[in-house]
């Protein structure tokens, strides 16, 4: 299907983490409304490569909205204008012919730019490594049905566990706070019986690592929840604060 939208893109280009970046303007012509946002960038990149120019680098992988690899701040909004949607699942029908679209990487001190729109989100890895698990090894575990879990509890844990770790919450927050991400993980385990033995030690370790990585604090603007592609709730943050407070209380 041939396209029928012509767009102007202002894209953040940055050679690497040490070179200053700048906005560069590109034309994206003949764009079909059925294309995903990343497919639109593919078209632009195909043209750039043909001219032996460096294509615009961006992170992406599954293109099904689940791997959490894609990012992009589009017209000031992480993952673009559509709610509950990752950039890869955003389609060009959300834009109008003639639009100018500004595309930036996640902006946060804890997520340094690697190249163009690609950032380094390894801070999230270290937070999970600090305690985002149940300390059991393979084998020797009880039968799966030995511990019944009330359905509402399991469902609540699942809705926290849905987080894809993309970092949109950080990008959306004026303080670049990672609290939505961290609290979702802490909540999943705090809710489930399997998470109980390490409940407070986990909350403490993950929160301390989060602070160490240089993420900001939470000032309750709820921008994270509004921009989260998986609609993770800010109530997780309240739960995390409670878990952390209890952890300190138990220690003292």
């Amino acid at each position: 299907m041939s396209g029928h939208m012509n767009l102007t893109l202002k894209v953040w280009r940055q050679k690497n983490s040490t070179t200053p970046g700048k906005f560069v303007t590109y034309k994206a012509n003949d764009i079909s409304p059925d294309m995903s946002f990343l497919e639109m960038l593919d078209v632009v990149n195909e043209d750039l490569v043909k001219k032996t120019e460096d294509p615009i680098h961006f992170d992406h992988d599954c293109r099904e909205g689940i791997c959490g690899m894609c990012s992009l701040v589009i017209n000031g909004e992480p993952h673009g204008p559509k709610r509950a949607t990752t950039t890869c699942q955003l389609h060009m029908r959300s834009f109008a012919d003639g639009d100018t679209i500004v595309i930036e990487p996640w902006r946060a001190a804890a997520f340094p730019v690697v190249k163009d729109l690609v950032t380094n989100r390894s801070a999230f890895e270290r937070i999970q490594q600090a305690g985002g698990y149940v300390s059991i090894s393979t084998g020797g575990v009880p039968d799966a049905n030995e511990i019944p879990i009330p359905k509402p509890v399991a469902d609540e844990a699942f809705s926290s566990a849905e987080c894809i770790g993309c970092g949109a919450c950080v990008a959306a927050c004026k303080n670049a706070s990672a609290m939505l991400f961290v609290s979702a993980k802490i909540s999943q385990y705090a809710l489930l019986p399997q998470g109980q033995p390490e409940r407070y030690a986990r909350a403490e370790a993950m929160v301390l690592q989060m602070d160490e990585e240089g993420f900001g604090g939470c000032t309750n603007t709820y921008a994270c929840e509004a921009q989260c592609p998986k609609e993770i709730k800010v109530t997780n943050i309240a739960r995390m604060n409670r878990e952390f407070f209890n952890a300190e209380l138990i220690k003292s």
């Binding site: 698990y133 009880p142 039968d143 399991a154 699942f158």
Partner: peptide
């Protein structure tokens, strides 16, 4: 059968019935 046990022990939130079982 061991896989399901392992995953549940890790805290994988599988779908459950109202009685609390998988």
């Amino acid at each position: 059968v061991n896989i399901i046990d392992q995953c549940v022990a890790q805290g994988v939130p599988f779908a459950r019935e109202y009685g609390g079982l998988l």
